[in-house]
């Protein structure tokens, strides 16, 4: 069964001058359980809006959003989904550890359990030594790793990520890719993520959805049938990358 399914979803925004801006048109998307889907497309083609719609933050004008087969409005198990926004959205008055704990505070976990979970997740993103540091004292890349940790701490089964690794340097990015793949396999997570980076899409995703702008629509959906872990130097890999670049 598909975990997330969009059926001809459209969305218009009204600009302040009263004009209508068609952001998404007839988007169909099917995300099977335990799959990793990449949304690839130019800036402004509505990728963040699409994630907002899936997360239930924005109502589509037309079309249906099904989560685990239930219409979004009737869906109950929202706590199994987390959303890592394009901006890190760290609360400035909380330390890194407290920020990671934020999502856990909505759950029934005890204080001690939360502390353990926070320590584990911070360790996962390599920021154990910065647990008691406030966001203003962190670099951009560290901040986005804290945001990633906050999304992972609640152990979601659906993970939405909007350009999660764009602020990381190549080596840490590769590590985070490996980590996300490991967690996805371990905890049976379904992932939808946005990226501008074609190689990143091919490293992580088993399905790449290429969007075209103004209005945003699905240009093509490509499956990547390579086994994990993927070697960016292999010919099959570079062929996929080249193919995607051509479509973009």
């Amino acid at each position: 069964m598909s975990v997330v399914a969009l059926q001809s979803v459209s969305k218009c925004f009204f600009r302040r001058d009263g004009e209508q801006l068609e952001v998404l048109r007839n988007i169909d998307l099917d995300v099977p359980e335990r799959s990793i889907v990449a949304l690839l497309g130019a800036s402004g083609c509505g990728k963040s809006t699409l994630l907002n719609i899936i997360a239930g933050l924005v109502e589509p004008d037309h079309g249906r959003v099904l989560l685990n087969g239930t219409p979004s409005a009737a869906f109950k198990d929202w706590r199994s989904m987390t959303y890592m926004f394009q901006e890190d959205r760290l609360l400035p008055w909380r330390t890194a550890a407290q920020n990671v704990a934020f999502g856990l505070e909505a759950t029934k976990l005890s204080r001690a359990e939360r502390r353990v979970r926070v320590a584990e997740t911070l360790d996962l993103v390599g920021l154990s030594q910065f647990a008691n540091v406030y966001p203003y004292e962190l670099s951009g890349g560290m901040r986005s790793r804290v945001a990633l940790a906050r999304s992972l701490a609640t152990e979601p089964s659906i993970l939405l990520m909007d350009e999660p690794f764009s602020k990381l340097d190549p080596s840490i990015r590769a590590q985070m890719h490996a980590e996300v793949l490991r967690i996805a396999a371990l905890r049976k997570v379904t992932i939808i993520f946005v990226t501008h980076d074609v190689e990143e899409a091919v490293v992580l995703a088993d399905k790449v959805v290429v969007l075209h702008p103004r209005p945003g629509r699905v240009r093509e959906t490509i499956s990547v049938p390579l086994a994990y872990p993927r070697d960016p130097l292999a010919t099959a890999f570079t062929d996929q990358v080249r193919h995607l670049r051509r479509i973009l």
Partner: peptide, 27 residues
């Protein structure tokens, strides 16, 4: 609003949004 939205994605109650987002901002 971004912080309020964040709290909403974790399905926090109104009271939690008040104490965890509003109060620290107003302090």
């Amino acid at each position: 609003v971004e912080f309020v939205e964040l709290a909403q994605t974790f399905r926090m109650s109104r009271r939690q949004v008040l104490t965890k987002i509003y109060l620290p901002t107003i302090l």
